[in-house]
């Protein structure tokens, strides 16, 4: 007789061989085996819940105050936000130190966020005696070649770019060897190397 799919065990529906198997005498454990095992278990460290179940228990417990739950969640979110900020800060928004353009540090600079509406921005820097000025920032990987500015008759260097909304840090590179923060910038931020970057928010 073939076993039915997923069905409970039904002794009345067994064939002769299956019945023989069912009636085969059982091997009984030696006396006291269960007691010995239980005794050994009592000496073992208590079993513990996996961390997921522990968390589920803490947050699912009816004894737990809602304020406590909320405070824990806020704390967790705060920790996550802190970690995120730390990672974002280290991931390359810091500008290159003067004279260090083209080094490996530049390659890791942050890219501007993708997507969204493009905003037209004109960078301007007054340097009538300069031979070249470039704007370098987190939107062009701090690459002077991608930020060459054009000199006007009045000694003002300008470059118009279109950028997605976001927050950018930038500097002006004068004559390929001197970094200057934008004197008209609304916001400046220390670069961690003793200088300041200008901040642009779009």
């Amino acid at each position: 007789m073939s076993p039915g799919p997923g069905k409970e065990f039904r002794p009345d529906a067994l064939g002769p061989l299956e019945e023989r198997l069912r009636r085969l005498s059982r091997d009984l454990p030696p006396e006291g085996l269960a007691g010995r095992i239980a005794g050994d278990l009592a000496g073992m460290p208590a079993p513990s819940l996996p961390w997921r179940s522990r968390l589920a228990r803490v947050f699912g417990s009816p004894r737990l105050d809602w304020g406590y739950r909320l405070a824990t969640l806020v704390l967790l979110m705060g920790i996550l936000a802190g970690v995120w900020l730390l990672v974002a800060r280290r991931s390359g928004t810091a500008p290159p130190a003067p004279g260090q353009q083209g080094t490996a540090r530049l390659a890791g600079a942050a890219r501007p966020p993708r997507g969204g509406k493009l905003v037209s921005v004109t960078f301007a820097f007054y340097a009538p005696k300069a031979q070249s000025v470039a704007v370098v920032g987190s939107f062009n990987d701090w690459d002077p070649k991608r930020g060459l500015m054009t000199r006007g008759r009045d000694g003002n260097w300008t470059l118009q770019v279109k950028l997605p909304s976001g927050r950018y840090e930038y500097l002006f590179l004068v004559d390929g060897n001197r970094y200057e923060a934008d004197p008209d910038a609304i916001e400046l931020i220390p670069d961690g190397l003793g200088h300041q970057n200008a901040v642009l928010r779009l």
């Binding site: 997923g6 069905k7 409970e8 065990f9 067994l14 299956e18 069912r22």
Partner: peptide, 10 residues
């Protein structure tokens, strides 16, 4: 398991 311990197939 099926015939000595009488477990369901599942």
């Amino acid at each position: 398991l099926r015939y000595q311990e009488e477990l369901s197939l599942a």
